[in-house]
Design a protein around this nucleic acid. Sequence first.
RNA 1: GGGCCUAUAGCUCAGCAUGGAUAGAGUGUUGGACUUCUAAUCCAAUGGUCAAGGGAUCGAAGCCCUUUGGGCCCA
Length: 628
Amino acid sequence: MTFKSILDEIENNLNKILGELSIHDVKFSVEPAKSGFGDVSSNVSFLLAKQLKKNPKDIADMLSERFQNCTNTLVMRSEAHPSGYLNFYADWGKLSQLILSESYLDEFGDVDIGKNTAIVVEHTSVNPNKALHIGHIRNIVIGDTVSRILKKANYKVNILNYVDDSGLQVADIIVGFKHLGFAEEPPHGKKFDHYCGDDVYVKTTEKYGADPSLERIRNNVLKELENGDSETARFADKITRKVLAGQLETCWNLDVFYDCLNFESQIIRSGLWSEIFEELKAMSLIEFEKEGKNAGCWVIRGEDNEEDKVIVRSNGTATYIAKDIPYAAWKLGLLDDPFNYEKYEKKQPDSRDLWQTTLKKNNPISQNFTGEKVVTVIDSRQARLQKIITSLMGKFKSMPDAYVHLGYESVTLSSETAKTLGLDTEGKQAQMSGRRGLYVNADSVYELLKEKTKEETKKRHSEMSPSEIEKIAHNVSVATLRYEMIKQDLDKIITFDLTKSLSLEGDTAPYIQYTCARASRILEKSDRIPTIDVDFSLLKEKSEIDLIKNIGLFNLQVRDAANNLSPKVIARYCHDLAVAFNSFYENAKVLELGDVNLENSRLCLVNSFKITLERALDLLGITAPDRM
RNA sequence: GGGCCUAUAGCUCAGCAUGGAUAGAGUGUUGGACUUCUAAUCCAAUGGUCAAGGGAUCGAAGCCCUUUGGGCCCA
């Protein structure tokens, strides 16, 4: 029950008091207090002020007095603050025991929001014609973190990666391979996805300006891609799968794993579109336009002031949104599944099965990767399109929020970083562009981080084996990259700067990981196995109580993060935990105190902290090394 | 022309959903703490007309309206 126990106790008692006063339907808050104002605060007196025609302070006084007469097990006393807040002080002897002994349980921090229902999280979904750049990483890390949080909130999460293997960008590199003579093998030592993105894609698109005939060739390629039997489609399939393999390697390295890969080409060939097209017509969700500029097209009427959206052009071809509609409906389980499934050719490092859709009929295996709800992680430039899909899905499925577009702002390059890539932006930040070769590859950032972390680790631990240093550097680099991608709000633009991103101090992942190393060291040196069979009332220093309080907030933070699909909440929580531990570390010694009971109690706290932080970090996909 | 996002300390950001106490971190700058469980740490100082204006409220960084700057999407 954790810290929530005391919140519940207070809320119940306050409700009881209000009931005695014949006051109902007041939605007051009961929250962890700001530092310096006790342990728990309630705004109840403010809300009653008008109704009772008294000032908040007098009401707080009255409530506080009545509160003394309630049965309290975890609250020591209540206090009316002159401001009008009602503050509560916990009986930490009891609350500490409750929190710390629970923290040892496997289910610590679990909340049940999902009731074990299935939810789909789709993320990554990068065109398979290039390597992942730092902007894609934001999508991937958000998606992966949200998935982990939803699992903790008792959802059955199906993680999908949509592979757009038949779009314009793929056509571009096929033009490069087939018509501009790019070799099929990358230069020695270069990953295939990097080669396709850095060389084939950029250099091919560069040539479009000079040679207009290439556009025509590309359009032909595009058409051939839609027909699965063409030689071009087979070639493209081979190339895109090699690129995809490279991209997946990057993801796996960051501890990001999937359940199923969905290929756009198969969605097109599956016939899902015509099925849903008929349904859209039947439900009058789309209309045939008889006049105006969209005459002859099937359109979705724009809501409010928005333009109508063309779904099928007058020449009968579907627009790109037409691919998204059946896919969204498929994810929600609204359509008969046209796919069979097969295992992906490589195993994921975490040994979770990775499936992929297939239209092959031999040896059919069926799987279910759909969900009651769907979360689609796509950057907010797609908000308009996603809004249409959301609204359509709302009409297909009468559940509120069944389809959620989780949008986020883009990652731009700082002017300095843009300059190192050869673009002078006159001090402004720059949008990344795969086409123009203006991006920073995720693999390169990881490598740079790892080199720097290795140096730092060597400096501190000259005795360490290279393999151990390698492992620490890997953990710290992955953590840094992931943490930087989610520590701020989704609707804030991240300006990526190659130099600044390498910082390992302050509000960074290493800061948090470092506290774990400190805790490990204490536990290791103690030569004892910490237990919960200790005297919790010995833990009464402010820094100890603060740390315990933070540990007790875990499930509340998970609830908040899951309800709001907000990875940032957990990032901040981890940081708060680390700050609380560092304060404890400075203020309270653990070992060689000459007081075995106190030592045991503190060891229990250290262990509890470590377990909790590790669990919270796990939600961020971060591992904390025991030494660093 | 229409729509979405955004503006809080020199810089990067929390806080805003659900209005109430003293607006918090990191970074920067200055100074201090390693014979003591790891200094990737800690402590102190410094730094704010919460973009501007208006409105409703006993009370606004937060809610409503208008304007401006920045970013994006559509036309």
